[in-house]
Design a protein around this nucleic acid. Structure first.
Length: 299
DNA sequence: CTAAGCTCCTGCAGGC
DNA sequence: TGCCTGCAGGAGCTTA
């Protein structure tokens, strides 16, 4: 599942292969891929045609291309990969993928950009760019933040990430700490995999109440989340192919480094106790019952 | 405002 | 072999 490291791998691929080029035309298959674009799929394809791509930006799991249309203000093509979305840089002659939903041709006649998504939780939208309301100026989001991303909190790998402020906000929540970690309006980029890994590294059970944890403990959880995502990003880069901007599952080879996620029954790398899996928010949580004791009092 | 539940979707694993 | 169920889960939306 694409979380921050996987999305960043894709962003870098776009930066290398798409930024600086001019879109000749966009072709959408069906309307679902653009369902978040209120003005409709035709509006999207019309306005993207002829636009030069100035940058590829990201916040959390959201990705966007900064576009300079021929006769309009700068705007963003926002991409969310959802569960199974992929952006591929593909030769025009390559056969269409089974779940191909969007295609972008360029004026240089070079490789196309394709959006492929099996489970169609992902999608595309055109949006205006606004001044960043959530983060400090960081030299990264120089073009601003697209409207659909304004409610998303800065992620822990942004240069201007406000660690202390995020800890305060986490602690103010009357909810379980894993829920808070997954809430993209509190801190972004963390999904189920890295939440489980961060909580294991910090020795905190995800069902502990965020407001009952100390600020230093929450700070450690946050630091571990940043660290595990940084490590995954380091390994995700190794599987990057020049013409293939891919995301599917944990990035690159990092799945070999997972301590608890998907490791049910296998020994905890720290103490050897078998890893447990339990239902949480209609999905799964993986943890070590010894390193991460359950809270004593049910909430 | 916050918190929690529902829902979208396809492919695959496992049980019988 | 084939059918069914459950599971994978990000995040917008609805409800309270």
């Amino acid at each position: 599942m694409p979380e921050l490291p996987e999305v960043e791998v894709v962003r870098r691929g776009l930066s290398d292969h798409v930024v600086g080029r001019t879109v000749a035309r966009a072709v959408l298959t069906g309307s679902r891929v653009a369902r978040r674009h209120a003005a409709g799929p035709t509006d999207l394809t019309d306005r993207v045609a002829g636009a030069r791509i100035l940058a590829a930006d990201r916040r959390g799991k959201y990705l966007w291309l900064v576009l300079a249309p021929p006769e309009d203000d700068t705007l963003a093509l926002v991409v969310h990969l959802g569960m199974s979305g992929q952006l591929l840089v593909q030769h025009a002659a390559a056969a269409p993928e089974k779940h191909l939903h969007a295609r972008f041709d360029f004026t240089d006649g070079g490789p196309q950009l394709r959006f492929v998504d099996q489970r169609t939780f992902g999608g595309l939208a055109l949006a205006e760019l606004h001044a960043d309301q959530r983060g400090a100026p960081d030299g990264v989001h120089v073009h601003g933040i697209p409207a659909p991303v304004l409610h998303i909190a800065p992620d822990p790998l942004e240069p201007a990430f406000d660690r202390a402020g995020t800890v305060r906000r986490m602690r103010s929540r009357d909810s379980e700490v894993k829920r808070v970690l997954l809430d993209q309006s509190v801190v972004s980029g963390i999904g189920n995999i890295y939440a489980d890994e961060a909580l294991w590294r910090a020795g905190v059970h995800g069902r502990r109440s965020a407001s009952a944890l100390t600020r230093p403990a929450l700070g450690r959880v946050l630091d571990h989340a940043a660290e595990v995502m940084r490590e995954a990003l380091g390994q995700g880069g190794t599987s990057f192919d020049a013409l293939y901007v891919n995301v599917n599952g944990a990035s690159g080879y990092f799945d070999r480094s997972l301590a608890v996620y998907g490791q049910t029954g296998r020994p905890c790398p720290r103490c050897g106790t078998p890893v447990l899996r339990e239902q949480f928010m209609n999905r799964s949580s993986h943890f070590c019952p010894r390193c991460q004791p359950r809270p004593r009092v049910s909430r």
